[in-house]
Structure formats: structure tokens, C-alpha cells
Amino acid sequence: MTKILVIEDQEDIRSIIKEILTAENFLVMDAENGQAGIKFLQTEIPDLIICDIAMPKVSGYEVVTWARENPTTEAIPFIFLTAKGSQNDIRQAIELGADDYLIKPFTRADLLGAIKARLEKEEIINRQTQKKLKKLDNELYSLMSDDLINPLNYIMSISKKLIDDYELMEREEILTKIKEIYNFSEKIHNKTSH
């Protein structure tokens, strides 16, 4: 279930948002101001944050700045929901790291549309990241395989020769082959232990 943190100092607006989101099967947590929102983010990690700007104690600008400076919260989609609608307000919010900006009064459709857009974008980013990680994992496996398989094949061929021909081999030749096995084994060990 998608967890959404609503940070809003006006209780009536916070209740309306909670009601709308709960009806859409979101798990909703709320904080009555920016300070409480930051405290919440120190223990819980939501999937999305909806935050007012003008609040007592800690403003929404301070919340988004704090969230973007912390590794555990820096990528959480962040939507401002505020009465501050000037171009400067919007620009400042985006520059601080907000992903979207809704101006009060808002409609249910506006709110849900913004949330849906942010969550879909997050899903696309996650899919792309997983593809990149899988590609890197495959490349690493391929490199490791080449580095390990070739020496192992050589060790196996030397061992096979020792098994098949040990009665015909001179003692010095046997010792040389055993040293080769040891050296290749050591190379494999060094590559895999770092």
C-alpha cells in the first residue's frame, strides 16, 4: 500500500486530504506542521510527501530542503499544496526540489492527478534503475566468468594431464605442474576475494 505523508497546519484541510486519499486506498500519515513532518521523516519513509508552505515553526521550504539533503528521503516525490501561487513562489519550490505544486483551493481531481503523475514517474525511474542494475550485474557476471573460467579450464587440463600421465612424468615435471595449479588457484582466489 502506498504511504503518503500529509504535512498541513490547517486541520480542516488536512482532514479533507486524508479523507480523499484514504478513499483511494492510500495509507495516510499526517503532521500538523513542518517540524512534526521532519520528525516523522526521521523514523518513517513514505512513498510521497504532500506539504503546505506557510506553516508555523518550520516552513514547507525548510521541509523540502531538509528532505533533499538526507539520503533516505532525497528521492521521495514531494508535492507542495499551498495558497502561495506567485511565479516566484513556484520557482523557489521547484529550485528547492519540489516535484509538483498545487495551489489552494484545489479539487479532488487536481490532487489525485498530481499524486498519480508523481507515482507513475517514480515507477518509471525504478524500472529504469532496475534495468541498469540488471545490465551491470550481467556485465559483471560475464567479466567474472571469463576471469574465472579460463584459469579453471587451465587448472583442469593440468590436473587431467597429471592424473593421466603421472607414471610417465619426471618428478620435476610433476612439481612444475603442481606449482602451475597453485599459481592459477592463487590468481582466482585474489580476484574473488577483493
Rank of each mutant, 00 (worst) to 15 (best):
E8I: 00
F184R: 10
E95L: 07
I103F: 05
S145I: 05
A109H: 14
R68E: 01
I38Y: 03
D137Y: 07
D146W: 14
P71A: 12
A98H: 01
K132D: 08
E8Y: 01
I38V: 13
E172Y: 10
Q10N: 03
N88G: 06
I124C: 08
I16E: 04
M55E: 06
D146K: 14
I7K: 02
T65A: 07
D110E: 15
F40Q: 08
E172G: 12
I163V: 13
Q87L: 04
K134L: 15
D99N: 13
M169I: 10
K84Q: 14
P46D: 02
G37H: 06
L148V: 14
G60E: 01
D147V: 09
K57N: 12
Y141T: 15
K116S: 14
A67D: 01
N150L: 09
I13T: 08
E139D: 15
S59T: 14
T176Y: 15
L136G: 10
I79D: 00
M55K: 02
K161R: 15
K177Q: 12
D47R: 02
K179V: 04
E24I: 07
I124R: 15
L5A: 02
D147T: 13
L96E: 05
S193E: 15
Q128L: 15
A75E: 14
K116I: 09
E11W: 03
K39P: 03
I49A: 00
D12L: 06
A114P: 06
K104S: 04
I76R: 00
I53D: 00
S15F: 01
M156G: 10
T2Q: 02
K104Q: 06
A93P: 04
Y101P: 02
Y101C: 03
I181A: 02
E173W: 10
S193M: 10
V6W: 00
N25A: 05
E74T: 11
K57I: 14
I50V: 14
R91A: 11
V58M: 09
T129R: 15
K161L: 09
L21A: 02
G85K: 07
A31G: 06
I94E: 04
